[in-house]
Structures are given as C-alpha cells and as structure tokens.
Amino acid sequence: MEPTGKRMTKQKKVILDILRNTKIHPTADWIYAQARKVLPDISLGTVYRNLGVLKEAGEIMELNYGSTYSRYDGNPENHYHFVCLECGRITDLEMAVHYELEKEAEAGDCGEVLYHRLEFYGICKACHQQRQN
C-alpha cells in the first residue's frame, strides 16, 4: 500500500492536468470550476486537499501574494513571475534563475538558504495599452 498522498487519484490527476495546461496561475475556485467539467461531483474541499498534497509533493507551486487567496502554478521548477498591479495577472518570465543570489544571502550570515522566489511588479502590456486609449 502506498503512503497517503502518493497515489495518483483520479481527482489529483485532473487537478494536476488542469494546472499543467494553463499559464494563468489560477485560484482554487477556478481550478474547481474546471475540474467539475470533468468530475461533476468533485467538491471544493477535495480540490483544496489535493492542491495541498500536490504542493507538498513538489508537483506544483502555491503563490501567495498577501491577498486573501492563493494562486497555483503547474510549473514546480523555480522561475520568476511578473505581477500586474492593475489586473492581477501573473506571468511567467522567461529568464534565467540567478542561484548566486542564494549564495550571497548565505554569505550575509542569514543561515542556510533552501530556495528563493522573485517577483516583479508593474503594469502588464494589456493594462498599459488600455491606459493609453
């Protein structure tokens, strides 16, 4: 018997597929709405539970920007994000992750750095264009 959370249940697979096939960094509610199209009887609690299990397993990332809800990223590899302060859109940035920042932080005697996250904040192209009109 596999340890709890290790088995790929039908619900977990649907949630992971949804996240791996979108770039919008959705909320749990959005994921729930999409999952119900495939599994009409899935509950919001099941979605939250499986998001937690997938996060703990390193399959997804939870992005929390201090708002009342988290966003989720189907790409668990360390990468940077751009957050639009106007519409809230979160975009993956196609740029190298600078792991030397971790060494610099450790050299500052903060302790052992396990990983880092970096976000850039501003106005996305779509919102900037709307401002111009």
Results as ranks from 00 to 15, higher is better:
Glu106Pro: 06
Leu19Ala: 00
Tyr32Cys: 01
Val83Tyr: 15
Asp41Met: 11
Tyr115Pro: 05
Gln129Cys: 01
Ser43Glu: 06
Asn64Thr: 07
Ser43Trp: 07
Glu112Ala: 03
Cys124Ala: 02
Gly52Leu: 09
Cys87Asn: 11
Asn64Trp: 15
Gly88His: 09
Ala35Ser: 10
His81Ile: 03
Tyr121Trp: 14
Tyr121Glu: 13
Gly122Ser: 08
Leu19Met: 09
Trp30Gly: 00
Pro40Val: 01
Ala33Trp: 07
Val113Met: 15
Gly5Glu: 04
Glu102Thr: 03
Arg89Gly: 00
Asp73Arg: 14
Leu39Ile: 15
Tyr65Ile: 08
Glu100Trp: 10
Glu100Asn: 08
Met8Leu: 10
Asp109Phe: 13
Arg89Trp: 03
Asn64Ala: 10
Leu44Ser: 04
Ile42Met: 03
Tyr115Met: 12
Arg131Ser: 03
Cys124Asn: 12
Thr91Asn: 06
His25Pro: 08
His98Gly: 02
Leu54Lys: 10
Tyr115Cys: 05
Glu59Gln: 13
Glu56Pro: 04
Asn78Tyr: 04
Asn133Gln: 12
Ala105Leu: 15
Lys10Met: 04
Gly108Ser: 14
His116Gln: 15
Asn50Ile: 01
Ile18Arg: 14
Pro26His: 07
Glu112Ser: 08
Cys127Ala: 04
Met1Gln: 08
Leu118Cys: 12
Ile24Cys: 06
Glu112Asn: 10
Tyr121Gly: 00
Met8Arg: 09
Asp17Gly: 02
Asn50Gly: 01
Leu114Gln: 13
Tyr115Asp: 15
Met1Phe: 08
Leu54Gln: 04
Ile42Tyr: 08
Asn75Leu: 11
Asp109Trp: 13
Thr91Gln: 14
Asn21Arg: 15
Thr46Trp: 08
Thr91Leu: 14
Ala57His: 12
Glu106Ala: 07
Leu85Val: 05
Asp109Thr: 06
Asn21Ile: 01
Arg89Phe: 00
Gly66Gln: 12
Leu101His: 12
Leu39Lys: 10
Lys13Asp: 00
Lys12Asp: 00
Met8Tyr: 05
Asn78Asp: 11
Tyr99Trp: 11
Ile60Pro: 11
Val97Thr: 14
Tyr99Gln: 09
Lys23Gly: 00
Ser43Asp: 02
Ala105Trp: 13
Pro40Arg: 09
Lys10Trp: 03
Tyr80Phe: 11
Ile60Arg: 11
Tyr32Ala: 00
Gly108His: 13
Asn133Thr: 06
Met95Asn: 05
Thr68Lys: 15
Val53His: 10
Gly111Tyr: 12
